[in-house]
Nucleic acid binder design. Sequence first.
DNA 1: AAATTAATTGAAAAACATTATCAATAAGGG
DNA 2: CCCTTATTGATAATGTTTTTCAATTAATTT
Lengths: 146, 146
Amino acid sequence: MNWQEVLSENGYRVSEPRRLVMQLLENSSQPLTPLQIYSALLQSGNTLGMVSVYRALELLTELCLVCLVYNSDGSPGYVLGMGGHHHHILCQSCHKAASFAGSEDLSALIEKVEADTNYRVKDHLLQLYGICPACQEKQSVRQEGN
Amino acid sequence: MNWQEVLSENGYRVSEPRRLVMQLLENSSQPLTPLQIYSALLQSGNTLGMVSVYRALELLTELCLVCLVYNSDGSPGYVLGMGGHHHHILCQSCHKAASFAGSEDLSALIEKVEADTNYRVKDHLLQLYGICPACQEKQSVRQEGN
DNA sequence: AAATTAATTGAAAAACATTATCAATAAGGG
DNA sequence: CCCTTATTGATAATGTTTTTCAATTAATTT
Ligand SMILES: [Zn+2]
Ligand SMILES: [Zn+2]
Ligand SMILES: [Zn+2]
Ligand SMILES: [Zn+2]
């Protein structure tokens, strides 16, 4: 099921702003803010209102077609969502994002936390931070240069 | 080492706004936004500038005396930081936060992600969401009432 | 305890970001 | 192709964060 179908099946229209936002995120390797999305789309000759970007992101997030992630400095951005349980890893240097399957086993941790805090655990937020292949390359080149 | 010492040892002064922000967070069970902190402090008869709240939070976060966390709706807030590796669990109903030791073992996951994505993992963001004891209580009472 | 000094504050303004309103537009069904 | 209604976008209002800089204050020195 592609994103157009997800929209339709949930009673939403496949409108121009939504299409533009999805297209841009599909081609962006790093999380973008609403303003970055708006600017990029204008720059590439499209015409749409800032407001539509906000509304598109809100809806697409709700439908899990895009995800809200946080850079290592805490600043938020939107990336394309993958279906199913997954998480993201972000490059601390260039902010490039990749996703990985949510195959982690948190059951031991959850059990312990429930016992310690008496909270009942329902969900989790997990992101990894690191260095992407390209930035590793750059770093080792700089190393050699010194 | 208390927070006053952390400030001093790092060459920062123990100023009034910093004291007020720390005091408030020490007594707050849920994440607060800069504005909420500012308002609460004014309300309780103190006098300080909004700007100082922002600056205090920035510094205290840098020194790990407070932590930036995200509610389940994605909205950010600040809570008191604990020393050492730890994470937070937030109530999806009342937003009350608790912390727990970072005793999770992510090594298997990290190995897999590094193999799959070629990123080199350096750090992680982990939060749990759930229902706090008080809200569990409220929910079961409502259940019985029906 | 007073003087010294540099970090820190806060008022005001500027810059930036988000939300509300509502008439005009366009997507999708018939 | 037309109709209906979801959706858009211009504008304005609202809210948040950053900048600036003279005044203040914490901590150190005398
Ligand atoms: Zn990178
Ligand atoms: Zn997961
Ligand atoms: Zn609760
Ligand atoms: Zn951890």
